[in-house]
Amino acid sequence: MEDLSLHILDVVENSTKAGANLVEINIKEDTDKDLLQIIIQDNGRGMDPKMVKRVTDPFITTRTTRRVGLGLSMLEQAAQEAEGYLTVTSEKGIGTEIRATFQASHIDRKPFGDMGSSMISLILGNPGVDFIYKSDFDGEKTTIDTRAIKAELDGTTTISDPAVLKLLRGVFEESLRN
């Protein structure tokens, strides 16, 4: 994966495959602490403690189409390359939280890349799932909740209307301080 927004796209796809209908994506950067955190929480089916322990093992996957699962392993690697780490907490029937921590200024910390495209791919690809996107760069905050947008559109068009997506793309892009 070239950038963090691709990792986010990939890991959130896991959430939607786990049956989540609400996924929260939280990006926090604190320059004073030189800390960057990406937190992804879902209300999917969750995992038992045994699975949580093995989830970053590339040879573990629940899928049947292939026998390797690289998504979380690669995010963990990206975090470790930037002096960070990945934690996974999950409860069966409740949901899963993925927390990737990075040293923000680390030379090997991947850039965010095209967050707008990742979010739009997620919204388009998962019409039954709502997303809460929160970013906080040293107190500069953005929140986008697809439930609020859908309510505002009020049935006149859908969130997958290219005009709506174009508008959203701009907001996601603006929210990042690159």
């Binding site: 994966m1 691709l6 796209l9 990939d10 796809e13 899928r63 189409t65 292939r66 699962g69 690289l70 998504g71 690669m74 095209d114 495209s117 990742s118 791919s121 690809g125």
Partner: peptide
């Protein structure tokens, strides 16, 4: 858009 697709440029 699996991990493989995303890494190969699906976005």
């Amino acid at each position: 858009m699996g991990t493989c697709g995303i890494a190969a440029g699906a976005r």
